[in-house]
Design a protein around this nucleic acid. Structure first.
Lengths: 403, 403
DNA sequence: GGCAATAAGTTCAGTGTCTAAACAAATCGA
DNA sequence: TCGATTTGTTTAGACACTGAACTTATTGCC
């Protein structure tokens, strides 16, 4: 909570304890007395903090439930009618948007299949803004914030640095453009693997706070979740599983190296090896036990296993969650993968490295984006002490672009 | 500073701000007024905090330097005669100990060449305790704490989980045994790669706060330093560079996998390939351009480059520091290594991935261990509010083992 | 030598936040 | 209707920070 190198005062304490309340309420509602018990604060302090959060529309009082002996508890919970977070995703062949309230409920969702390969940044941004509006239509709730998921390598400043399949958008400052259009101060931008990982983190409360999420989209990315937080690395390049080496002298990769995971398990290579036009066809071929398809998937699984072994020996995480294509091919890909992992990962002996498959579909990244906004708000609700006064970004009717 | 999930109060603020003072003084002494300027606190607060730290013997007032106009500043600095930290290292063929004062100055050092392969845990612990005493001999300063460096995989609880060359010590709870003998409450245990990395962090102030330190001892380990902090992973297994895959079907490794970095660049393999008995001989052979030796080192460099490329694509760090054997062979190993890195590491285009060589020798890990103790103290001096009262561990004369 | 200028460090009233304990409120059970 | 029980609020006190006034110590200039 406290920012290193910055002096702490009473306000710092307040901020920390406000965050204690909101995170304690993220799971289930609770009375003030129970909050005091959970957080270790006194009842008096909890009352004071809850008052602040209610006045900020972050919390609301619920109806007392089945009364027992003693004064009935008045449960307090995250306000489903408080500010909403919007997640956006710009991908190769679709755009998506998602509105989430503070409780994590989806309040709006749009998935627009569209080929973005030939579109300019301006066009894509305009479309994304439209989706953002649609997704908030009918919700008379202020905008908490917006986050954006992109397919490719995203720098720390939100720039799209590498996007092999969206060349027109490479180098575009999509985050800043969208922030201007949507009239939000800051807009978090991250790649789909990272945000997919976060979606998994919050959608599976018992799924652990440490895992690798493998995003099997066009590239092979991984989101590293360590102690419930994303590990991004210094430039935001962390988790580039696609360019971990499987064979030093393997096939040449677009990155300039040789034998990268992507050259065995990337979607493009996978389809080519299987001689199938798209993922749907591959899935069908696999279910009818097409030998070429099976071989291609097995090769991919084995290479992915080698790459993940290297990754796990470097970052030491106890679980792997497969997303994207790999989730859809889980059944077929799993044996080769586990075989490699079992023989290669050091920690596989002491801690059973669980492998599982994401239950979220294509909407993982958008959900994660919106969730990231909510998460930030719940982890530091004190940020909004000035925020609620200047509610210029509160109404869905924003300043439209001129022309 | 603040512990997540724990209520914050005024004491929390104090603790944070005390740490602000000590870390601000880690570089150079400063007057109270300058500290106020550096930290952002008021002069009044700084005075109060400094008083506390002086009473705890963490800080001392120095002599006023060349006076200028105005009341002369009274510089405050870390107390070189305050508590001392002890670092210990148990390695395959030596034991080492190091005493560091709060300013980071070495106040005592011992390096005892001894073959530990045949010794039991009890024997090694007893020897280490003796060295710890020797290193503090003549220093009438309380003991700040002790940390221990081990060659192998160290679990989060300090257990030595894998130590291929010290089979008698595998599974031993050396940290707990030493803590009991030395009468310290807790004793930080970590592997030599991690502590070597920390030593590098503090010995090269301009060396950056993000890098991989490659420890070329018996195994090939890596210490990952991210934003000035060690990245240990969930079980403490992070950074096992030796078992990153170079060739999926390469030679069988002791870990059960195939084609691990260790099978090309490990010290044992390296010596075997070069047909040399030990590292000294190898160094000599290399300087007289022995073709076998050069080939072996080049092979190692190339394999290390492949492994490090995978590592950097996973954790995204901007610099590599070579330690151990690799530092000694830097000249010869560097070309092959940089070639692999340049073609394979994604971020090598945007951020120049600097490769350099540690200036510390075999004492890197002990220094790092002692430094880790000092670092912890400076980052949270508030921990010692109760500590100084019960000064049972303050005198060098401790309770000896009975018998 | 005396005195303004300058800068360092201290003192003190004021404010915000937490704690602990007493108090008020609301319900059950007899 | 009354005691038991639990929730939530009030209040006095403690603690740490801030800002401003104040004290201290030195330089530089007349």
């Amino acid at each position: 909570m406290t920012v290193p190198g910055t002096p702490a005062g009473q306000q710092t304490v307040r901020r920390h304890n406000l965050s204690l309340i909101t995170t304690a309420l993220a799971g289930a509602p609770a009375s003030r007395a129970e909050l005091a018990h959970r957080t270790g604060l006194t009842k008096a302090t909890v009352s004071s903090l809850v008052d602040v959060l209610i006045s900020q529309t972050i919390l609301v009082e619920g109806v007392p439930d089945a009364p027992r002996v003693g004064r009935p508890a008045r449960p307090v919970r995250l306000n489903p009618d408080g500010p909403v977070a919007v997640g956006l995703e710009i991908n190769v062949d679709y755009l998506a948007a998602c509105a989430l309230d503070l409780t994590g409920q989806v309040r709006g969702y749009r998935h627009a299949p569209v080929d973005n390969r030939g579109r300019t940044a301006d066009q894509v941004v305009a479309h994304a803004v439209r989706l953002s509006d649609e997704v908030r239509a009918g919700l008379d709730q202020p905008l908490l914030g917006v986050a954006l998921a992109l397919p490719g390598v995203v720098g720390v400043d939100g720039e799209l640095l590498r996007a092999p399949n969206l060349p027109l958008l490479a180098g575009a400052r999509l985050g800043q453009a969208l922030a201007g259009e949507l009239n939000v101060r800051e807009l978090q931008v991250d790649n789909e693997a990272n945000l997919g990982a976060l979606a998994r983190l919050w959608s599976a409360p018992d799924g652990g706070r440490d895992f690798v999420y493998v995003s099997g989209e066009i590239g092979v990315g991984a989101g590293l979740v360590v102690n419930g937080e994303l590990f991004r690395g210094v430039n935001g390049f962390a988790g580039e599983l696609g360019h971990v080496v499987v064979e030093r002298d393997g096939p040449l990769c677009g990155c300039g190296g040789r034998g990268c995971v992507e050259q065995y398990a990337g979607q493009e290579v996978l389809l080519r090896n299987a001689e199938q036009p798209d993922v749907e066809a591959l899935e069908a071929a696999v279910t009818r036990s097409d030998p070429r398809a099976l071989a291609a998937v097995e090769l991919a699984g084995s290479a992915l296993g080698v790459g993940l072994s290297s990754l796990l020996n470097v970052v030491d995480l106890p679980a792997i969650v497969l997303g994207g294509v790999y989730a859809r091919l889980y059944r077929v890909i799993e044996p080769a993968l586990t075989a490699e992992l079992a023989s290669r990962v050091l920690s596989s002996r002491s801690s059973a490295g669980r492998l599982c498959c994401s239950s979220l579909g294509v909407d993982a990244a958008v959900r994660g984006a919106a969730g990231a906004v909510v998460d930030r708000a719940l982890k530091d609700p004190g940020r909004f002490t000035e925020w609620d006064a200047s509610s210029d970004s509160s109404s869905p009717s924003r300043a439209r672009r001129t022309g």
